[in-house]
């Protein structure tokens, strides 16, 4: 189990973390089975990785499903584990993985292992998350 700090401003969306995770932890090259996914929209200046967790957000509260869009399975993690700090997202990857392959393979150093598990989760509203997903930029 690792506590990961994701620094969106460093991520360039390449997606190697997804395949690293799935090859090390799920036994095949398959982003769908990765515990980290990258949200990538080149045309919207938005690209950053998320730890994926079980989705338990009711449809009407989810910024994706609620708008008739499909769920990229990322907002859940933000709700369930991260603490949004200045320019970084701290997330808990609950997988028992020795390698932290996502960290090792990221060429941008956009994912780092944090020593301590952060304190109680902050209350983060769905709107804040949706906004941060779409507006986190590099500048």
């Amino acid at each position: 189990m690792h506590v990961l700090e994701v620094i969106p401003s460093r991520c360039n969306g390449c997606g190697i973390c997804e395949v690293a995770c799935s090859q090390y932890c799920a036994g095949e090259a398959n982003p769908e089975k990765s515990h980290i996914r990258v949200f990538r929209r080149e045309d919207k200046a938005t690209t950053f990785p998320f730890v994926v967790d079980k989705c338990d957000i009711p449809e009407k509260e989810c910024p994706w499903k609620g708008n008739g869009k499909s769920c990229p399975k990322i907002a859940t993690t933000l709700l369930s584990c991260p603490v949004i700090e200045e320019g970084a997202l701290v997330m808990l990857c609950r997988v028992d993985c020795k390698e932290a392959a996502c960290v090792k393979f990221c060429p941008m150093q956009a994912i780092e292992i944090v020593e301590e598990i952060p304190g109680p989760e902050k209350e983060v509203g769905v709107e804040t998350i949706a906004e941060s997903l779409l507006t986190i930029g590099r500048k």
Partner: peptide
């Protein structure tokens, strides 16, 4: 905005 590449590019 950032320097990118294709999938999995070091």
């Amino acid at each position: 905005v950032f320097v990118g590449g294709c999938f999995g590019c070091p």
